[in-house]
Design a protein around this nucleic acid. Sequence first.
DNA 1: ACTATTTCGTCATGGCGATTTACAAATTAG
DNA 2: CTAATTTGTAAATCGCCATGACGAAATAGT
Lengths: 402, 402
Amino acid sequence: MTAPLHEAHPAGPGRALPDTQQGMRRRNLARVLHAVRAEGPLSRAAVASRIGLTRAAVSTLVDELVRSGLIEELGPERPGRVGRPGSALAVSGRGPAGIGAEIGVDHLAVCAVDLRGTTRSRAIRQGANRGRSPGPVIAELTELIGRVVAEAADEGLWPAGLAVAVPGLVARDARTVVRAPNLDWHDTDLGGLLPADLPLTVDNEANFGALAELWLEDGTPHDFLHVSAEIGIGAAVVVDGGLLRGTRGFAGELGHVPVRPDGPACACGGRGCLEQYAGEEAVLRAAGLEPDEDRVGLLAGRAAQGDEDVRRALRDAGTALGVALTGAVNLLDPQSVVLGGELSGLAPWLLPSLREELARRTAGPACPVSVSRLGPEGPLLGAAHSVVRAVLDDPAAVAARA
Amino acid sequence: MTAPLHEAHPAGPGRALPDTQQGMRRRNLARVLHAVRAEGPLSRAAVASRIGLTRAAVSTLVDELVRSGLIEELGPERPGRVGRPGSALAVSGRGPAGIGAEIGVDHLAVCAVDLRGTTRSRAIRQGANRGRSPGPVIAELTELIGRVVAEAADEGLWPAGLAVAVPGLVARDARTVVRAPNLDWHDTDLGGLLPADLPLTVDNEANFGALAELWLEDGTPHDFLHVSAEIGIGAAVVVDGGLLRGTRGFAGELGHVPVRPDGPACACGGRGCLEQYAGEEAVLRAAGLEPDEDRVGLLAGRAAQGDEDVRRALRDAGTALGVALTGAVNLLDPQSVVLGGELSGLAPWLLPSLREELARRTAGPACPVSVSRLGPEGPLLGAAHSVVRAVLDDPAAVAARA
DNA sequence: ACTATTTCGTCATGGCGATTTACAAATTAG
DNA sequence: CTAATTTGTAAATCGCCATGACGAAATAGT
């Protein structure tokens, strides 16, 4: 007999709803929808057995979801088993869509993802955004969004929300970019600049990248650390299937974890921060290269050609990352560490020394480090999917707007 | 309009219960009980308005809690306001009690806490436990537990569960002590040694200390870092009012965060871990003292007398702590850092350099660092209260056993 | 081919829990 | 002493899920 631990996370969809019969109904709608989405075409009976309700209850829930256009009936299953075949249910490919957007240092991107998780429309615009003021950038982005939304509309999709990934720190209001050094934006309220007719969420690209990893890649654990870097080095901490955001929303500032307390001074005021060793500028300098436009591509290219200076610089960066991650792993005990974002392109040269450093400093088996297969796509997909997730977590709310 | 963020923590009592009408009832019982406990004597109407149910619904819930003996009716309120006065409800001072126990390096302690949070009985036994095998220690502890339980029974309390704080790492099964260097225990299943008639939870003393801080001290934030040290340096991470445990239950190993990557070798395999600079042994060595029985007391005494060697050693330890905490704060963005456990006794000499280091390495306002007022009592109280909390979180479960 | 068996979806019924509505009781304001 | 206000409870109602029964649609066995 064991008393319950004090877990912070009960998990499961839609648990923020009130404890009334209507709230229960809404949560159960969400559970049905989640089950159908996660386990492909499913009969009502199959759903019932998975989520622990009776067939009758599931029937009425499914009716409601079908009426809302979130679930569609595919017709009778082709059975190999005895008994009347069920009627296959699947998440609808029409209806609400999640609009994801990314403001990168060198590009803007927008995509629309349907409830099934399929990307149905996308638009990209290359072009450096560093130092441009928010207004024009957002104006361009808004135009891309308009295009993507229109294209999605042609396929019977309507936008259920907009999520924007930015390379910087975002306040907990999910609207204000507090600091984006690569863009040189400070305390910018994107809510005032973007179309007001859509529910808006703004978040760090590392956070969205982590969510993409969590939701899109099979086998991703519920507790992991997602490291991402453009110029700054960010990390997202996923705990029990949710993001750890911190009081101000600044959690995951891996770039300013001290690696050598007496190292070179950093803009943050500290000394020897990870960014001084594994940040893009530092690596370029260590490799004897000049900063240029496609910096990651440059490094990857040189390293692939066998440039020993570049390789050494990356090895050293990996070692520094290993030291910082040792601290993080000791503190958080995650199930794995994932390298994502632009960083994943340099992984072949970073990983060996990173793993070696981590293993050397760990008693027992070291925390496994892997590379995201989503690569630079992660943040954009994570953003779009976060909107889809919100719909799946409370279908009743969105059905009311449909 | 803002789309919901992906929070990991809906928070609130008893959210692990199933989504059926009975589960709803159980959760609402918990909400009533929590409200009454947290906000002192309250009328049914007051409870109803706080938790958002109707007076009628609360009435039946309260009836059930009164019948279970968890709530008692104090009689009519003395009103200054117009209208019929309500009938004051309070949590019962009889009924279930939480039994907390602590296995320290130099002592054993047990206490009983009632639903109101009052400590009703306690027992302490001094005596070094380092290197003793688990069997005899647990036997002694069991005897103390028996005494405390008997004393509590005289006051109408019955034990609802037992929580044991140990100075070491505990597996997620909440029974097995994986590694307790100060006791020299390894992979010890306390579940097999302790009385089997009580629901048992075993956890790290830092974790229980953090919970005590969270639950007992007004104004404690929902996101903070609780640092604690006996010989090893442990930390507990509280996120959204819950403990972050990590995959294996080892989260919070602050002692092995690298502070100087090329520093002295550590037993963990790494180099320059915090423990090499701020661990008790390291500090004693740096101060030129021999390890002895009451080590913390020794250090505090010498420092208070003005022993400059000791003070310098503590200052340096504070600086090292500051470096490690900078990393942790950057990663977690907690609202505050609390120094607890034995460590709090040395705080006057550690804090200045710690704060200085943290501030120096932080852009903007540094994370506030405070000292626990619970001191060495924290873990024991946290353990007992964790049992009480479990009762408050699901009163129906315990009412069935009463 | 025909029947028995199994499974699916639905309907009618019932239980349970919260809301709604109404009302008596207990206080203050005038 | 009356009006107004608030509390607690009781009765009726509504919503949601469970239960049990039934027809429908498939397979398995004879």
